[in-house]
Design a protein around this nucleic acid. Structure first.
Length: 292
DNA sequence: CGCCAGGTTAGAG
DNA sequence: CTCTAACATGGC
């Protein structure tokens, strides 16, 4: 059972996939050659599917198991969000082609899009894990977290993981995560997040229904979620093109190199540069990250 | 050993 | 409101 999702203008599957290949520690999807395989939860099922790119046609999705027609729309919706298929990036590239800093990046990585994180709990936890540590270590922590607490499926001899459920993490004590080398602070934040999701206090659906201002306020009211994390999540989960993780270490490093500074740029300098990307800050950030 | 890494918080001024 | 120490640990 398979179907094809047409892709929009200014879309490059390979560039998006290279992002998904950036860590060998990633357990939440698997590559078999050029085919990408993943499990998601939909309507109470663990749904295993694969995607690959067919030149001139689009993204081909194969339902592996269960092969139920009723689950097709959930998988299609997931893939659309995952690969950012519903954003018209033509205005961004038009703007980037006239910008000294972005032009070479936009040309080299044309069609690269923000790989989404449709699951809000996963998105928040991943952002918290990534706070203040290098990305390699962040991937190590996530790997341990998923291995220890995520649901595991074995199909035809291969193992696939789901991101841990809030209900499972909500029952942990900080010590359980300290053992995995999470800091006490991260442990508290993550368990707190899990409890808020498990109790229903926070959910993607609730935040989705809010006005942008209230959504931002709600995110910032959560312990462990500051401005950087809130913007990261608005970028990857809620797809705000104007989300802007100001202060991001990677963005600072990228700008430092591109501007040939002998120090990291100040927050004021970054803000001044980004004035010209107004409305597209998330994508400008994405391309600066890509330059690393 | 020192400093930085996809920061946030609580407390002081 | 702004500034700062503390938080923990890997990697260079």
């Amino acid at each position: 059972m398979d179907f094809i999702i047409p892709v929009p203008e200014a879309f490059n599957f390979s560039h998006c996939v290279s992002y998904l290949r950036r860590s060998p520690k990633e357990l939440l999807h698997v590559f078999e050659g050029d085919t990408l395989i993943k499990v998601i939860r939909a309507s109470g099922h663990s749904v295993l599917f694969s995607v690959r790119y067919l030149t001139g046609e689009g993204i081909r999705v194969d339902m592996i198991t269960p092969r139920k027609t009723a689950l097709v729309s959930a998988v299609e919706k997931y893939v659309r969000e995952w690969f950012d298929l519903d954003t018209d990036l033509r205005p961004f590239f038009e703007m980037a082609s006239k910008d000294k800093l972005l032009k070479p990046l936009a040309a080299q990585y044309y069609g690269y899009r923000i790989v989404g994180l449709p699951d809000l709990f996963e998105s928040l936890v991943w952002a918290v894990i990534g706070q203040q540590i290098n990305l390699g270590f962040a991937h190590t922590l996530k790997q341990r977290f998923v291995e220890h607490f995520g649901e595991r499926l074995t199909i035809r001899g291969a193992t696939y993981y789901l991101f841990p459920e809030p209900g499972v993490i909500a029952q942990l004590h900080p010590e359980d995560l300290l053992t995995l080398q999470f800091s006490r602070q991260k442990s508290r934040y993550i368990i707190g997040l899990a409890r808020a999701f498990a109790s229903g206090e926070i959910s993607r659906e609730k935040l989705q229904a809010m006005e942008p201002g209230e959504r931002m306020e709600t995110l910032l009211s959560i312990k462990g979620i500051g401005s950087w994390t809130a913007n990261y999540v608005l970028m990857r989960t809620f797809r705000y093109p104007e989300a802007f993780p100001l202060g991001d270490a990677g963005l600072n490093t990228a700008l430092r190199r591109l501007l040939k500074l002998d120090r990291k740029p100040t927050s004021a300098e970054v803000q001044r540069i980004f004035q010209r990307y107004r409305g597209w800050e998330a994508y400008a950030t994405l391309y600066f990250w890509k330059s690393l």
